[in-house]
Amino acid sequence: MASELLRNLIKEQSTPLYLEARNKEDVIKEISFKISQVKKNLKEEEIFIGLSEREAKASTGVDLGVAIPHTSLNKIVDTELYFFLAPHGIEFSSLDSEPSYLFFVILSPKNPKKPYISSLKIMADICRTMRIDRVRFKLKSAKSLAEVLQILEG
């Protein structure tokens, strides 16, 4: 199994998979908008501010075409993971200076009240899973969330 943890966290996502934005700031705006459409208790602006403030500290573009934007928010109770694809690639100030295609977005509780999955554990699992070439290449060409989940399962 590529990653049961990632598969289980992404399974509830009902946001559109593909990103249309062409630059880093617009990607963060689009991600914020899409998540706010399904998370009615979160405003687009608060997601955008959280992700942007984190991005200003250091880029969340990792390498191998992967970016992991993340933030902690007051209104989040349990850690949430969203997956988005940018088939055209986005310059995201990645460590390897290559465009990012695969976006794993982590929203975690600012003040967790019960045991929760830490964003560091999720980031480690993303990095470990994305080192598997066949998984990464298949994800880049996925056509649906169901296909993404199958890839992470297999």
Rank of each mutant, 00 (worst) to 15 (best):
S3P: 05
S3F: 00
E4F: 11
E4Q: 04
L5G: 01
R7W: 02
R7S: 08
R7M: 06
N8M: 04
N8I: 03
L9W: 10
K11C: 04
E12G: 12
Q13G: 12
P16A: 15
L17E: 00
Y18Q: 05
V27Q: 03
I28A: 04
I31C: 06
S32N: 03
S32H: 13
K34G: 10
I35C: 10
S36P: 04
Q37S: 10
V38T: 15
K39T: 07
L42W: 15
K43M: 14
E44I: 09
E46R: 05
F48M: 07
F48Y: 13
I49W: 06
G50I: 02
L51F: 15
S52W: 14
S52C: 06
E53V: 14
E53A: 11
R54I: 11
R54G: 07
R54K: 13
A56E: 14
T60L: 03
G61C: 01
G61T: 00
V62T: 09
V62Y: 13
L64A: 13
L64V: 00
V66L: 02
P69H: 09
P69I: 00
K75V: 03
I76C: 01
V77S: 09
V77W: 06
D78V: 13
E80G: 06
L81C: 07
F83R: 03
F83Y: 12
A86C: 12
P87Q: 13
P87K: 14
G89T: 10
I90M: 04
F92G: 00
F92E: 00
S94Q: 10
L95Q: 06
E98V: 12
E98L: 14
E98Q: 11
E98C: 12
P99A: 03
S100A: 14
S100L: 02
Y101K: 03
F103V: 01
F104L: 05
V105F: 06
V105G: 01
V105N: 01
L107N: 04
P112R: 04
P115E: 05
P115A: 01
Y116H: 14
I117P: 09
I117R: 03
S118C: 07
S119L: 00
L120R: 15
K121S: 09
M123R: 10
M123D: 08
A124N: 07
A124W: 12
A124L: 10
I126T: 03
I126V: 11
I126H: 15
C127Q: 06
R128Q: 07
M130I: 07
R131K: 11
R131Y: 14
D133T: 15
R134K: 10
V135G: 02
V135M: 03
R136T: 01
F137T: 04
F137S: 07
F137E: 08
L139C: 07
K143M: 07
S144C: 11
A146F: 14
E147M: 04
V148P: 07
L149W: 12
L149T: 05
I151A: 11
L152Q: 05
L152C: 09
E153N: 14
E153D: 13
G154W: 02
